[in-house]
Simulated assay, not measured.
Amino acid sequence: MDFAKYAAYRVTDFLADDDFIDGVLQPTAQTALFWSRLAERYPAQQANLAQAAAILRSYRQQDTFADATIQDELWQRIAAEVGPAMLVAARLRARRWPTVLRVAAAVIPLGVGSFAFWYSQDQQVRTAYGEIKTVDLADGTQVVLNGNSSLTYQRGWGHRTRQVWLRGEGFFRVAHLNQDTAQVQPGERFVVHCRGLNVEVLGTTFNVNDRPGKVNVGLVTGKIRLTTALPNQPPTALTLAPGDYVEYAARRISAPRRLAHPEHLTTWSRRQFSFTNARLGDILKTLQDAYGYQVTYAHPEAANLQIEGEINVAGVAELLETVSASLHVRIAQQGHHLVVN
Results as ranks from 00 to 15, higher is better:
residue 3 F to T: 03
residue 6 Y to W: 06
residue 7 A to I: 10
residue 23 G to T: 07
residue 25 L to C: 00
residue 25 L to H: 02
residue 26 Q to V: 08
residue 27 P to C: 04
residue 35 W to T: 08
residue 40 E to N: 07
residue 40 E to I: 00
residue 41 R to Y: 03
residue 42 Y to P: 05
residue 50 A to Y: 04
residue 54 A to R: 07
residue 60 R to N: 07
residue 65 F to A: 14
residue 69 T to V: 15
residue 77 R to L: 12
residue 78 I to K: 00
residue 81 E to C: 14
residue 83 G to R: 04
residue 83 G to V: 02
residue 83 G to F: 03
residue 84 P to L: 02
residue 85 A to M: 08
residue 85 A to E: 14
residue 85 A to Y: 08
residue 86 M to L: 11
residue 87 L to C: 01
residue 90 A to M: 03
residue 99 T to K: 12
residue 106 A to H: 10
residue 110 L to T: 03
residue 112 V to A: 12
residue 112 V to R: 15
residue 115 F to W: 07
residue 116 A to T: 10
residue 118 W to H: 10
residue 120 S to L: 13
residue 123 Q to K: 13
residue 123 Q to W: 09
residue 127 T to P: 04
residue 131 E to A: 12
residue 146 N to R: 00
residue 146 N to Q: 00
residue 154 Q to L: 05
residue 154 Q to G: 10
residue 155 R to L: 15
residue 159 H to N: 12
residue 160 R to P: 06
residue 164 V to P: 01
residue 164 V to T: 01
residue 168 G to T: 07
residue 171 F to P: 06
residue 173 R to C: 03
residue 177 L to P: 09
residue 179 Q to K: 12
residue 182 A to E: 12
residue 185 Q to V: 12
residue 186 P to H: 06
residue 187 G to A: 15
residue 189 R to N: 09
residue 190 F to W: 05
residue 191 V to Y: 03
residue 196 G to Y: 02
residue 196 G to R: 01
residue 206 F to N: 01
residue 207 N to A: 05
residue 208 V to H: 04
residue 214 K to W: 12
residue 215 V to G: 01
residue 218 G to E: 07
residue 219 L to R: 03
residue 219 L to D: 03
residue 220 V to W: 07
residue 221 T to D: 00
residue 221 T to E: 00
residue 222 G to C: 02
residue 225 R to P: 05
residue 229 A to F: 02
residue 234 P to Y: 01
residue 234 P to Q: 06
residue 235 P to H: 12
residue 237 A to T: 11
residue 238 L to H: 03
residue 244 D to V: 07
residue 266 T to I: 14
residue 272 Q to N: 10
residue 272 Q to E: 15
residue 277 N to R: 09
residue 279 R to L: 04
residue 282 D to W: 11
residue 282 D to A: 14
residue 282 D to I: 10
residue 284 L to Y: 07
residue 289 D to W: 14
residue 289 D to S: 13
residue 295 V to P: 05
residue 299 H to R: 14
residue 301 E to Q: 13
residue 303 A to C: 13
residue 305 L to E: 11
residue 305 L to F: 00
residue 307 I to M: 12
residue 307 I to G: 06
residue 309 G to M: 06
residue 312 N to H: 14
residue 312 N to T: 11
residue 317 A to G: 06
residue 317 A to R: 08
residue 318 E to S: 11
residue 318 E to I: 05
residue 321 E to G: 04
residue 323 V to E: 04
residue 325 A to V: 11
residue 327 L to D: 08
residue 333 Q to W: 01
residue 333 Q to C: 00
residue 333 Q to P: 01
residue 333 Q to V: 05
residue 335 G to Q: 01
residue 337 H to T: 15
residue 338 L to E: 08
residue 338 L to R: 06
residue 340 V to A: 09
